[in-house]
Simulated assay, not measured.
Amino acid sequence: MPTLTAVHGDITQQHVDAVVNAANNRMRGGGGVDGAIHRAGGPAVLADCIARFPHGLATGDAGWTTAGDLPATWIIHTVGPNFAAGERDRSLLESCYRRSLEVADELSARSISFPLISAGVYGWPLDDAIDAAVEVLQGTGTAVDDIRLVAFSAPTFARLARRLGQAQG
């Protein structure tokens, strides 16, 4: 069973095999985590997105690109549901985590960092976003050894750590 931990920090600075990007359907970069990952990864990330996903990616699905200048090997892009726009089917959110782990296994990744998908500008309620992430990541079989849920803000990290029963120091 993989180790699931909460991390307080910047997902673009995680030294892991794969970093998960909370992307939009267009796969051309955006705001929030998506924008930060594209900026830190550099132009190679966008070029690979255009080549691999000429028609974008469906909500709940995942695919990979180079990590460009990030300290990772791959970026696994997944498109979460936009709660604020009325996409409230939790199974789509759960699918993002499950599909990302499937892609990680296809790549033989052993370590992976996730943001809380859809919990930012897409407006998914934070506690439910945390519950969905933890339930799927703890309940899905994978060869990944090290799974990290990375929170940029201290209050979100505290909630994640509490949910995982993890010390917050």
Score class of each variant (00 low, 15 high):
Val16Ile: 12
Phe152Pro: 07
Gly86Pro: 02
His15Glu: 15
Gly31Leu: 06
Ala67Thr: 02
Arg148His: 11
Arg52His: 14
Val20Ala: 04
Asn21Tyr: 03
Gly120Trp: 07
Gly139Ser: 02
Cys49Leu: 05
His55Ala: 15
Ile130Asn: 04
Arg110Cys: 01
Asp105Ser: 00
Leu92Met: 13
Ser111Asp: 04
Leu101Lys: 00
Val7Gly: 14
Gly32Gln: 04
Gln13Lys: 15
Leu101Trp: 02
Asp61Lys: 11
Leu164Tyr: 00
Thr140Gly: 05
Arg99Trp: 00
Ala6Arg: 07
Ala119Arg: 06
Ala119Cys: 01
Ala161Arg: 02
Ala51Gly: 12
Glu102Val: 11
Gly35Ala: 04
Ala6Ser: 11
Ala129Arg: 03
Ser111Thr: 03
Thr156Leu: 00
Ile147Arg: 14
Gly165Met: 06
Pro43Gln: 14
Ala132Ser: 09
Ile37Gln: 10
Arg110Asn: 03
Asp89Gln: 08
Ala85Arg: 08
His15Asp: 15
Asp61Leu: 10
Ala18Gln: 06
Ile117Cys: 10
Ile130Gln: 05
Cys49Thr: 04
Gly141Trp: 15
Met27Arg: 03
Met1Thr: 08
Arg26Gln: 15
Thr3Trp: 13
Asp131Ser: 14
Asp69Phe: 12
Asp17Leu: 10
Pro43Gly: 04
Phe157Cys: 00
Gly31Trp: 09
Cys96Arg: 01
His8Met: 09
Pro71Met: 11
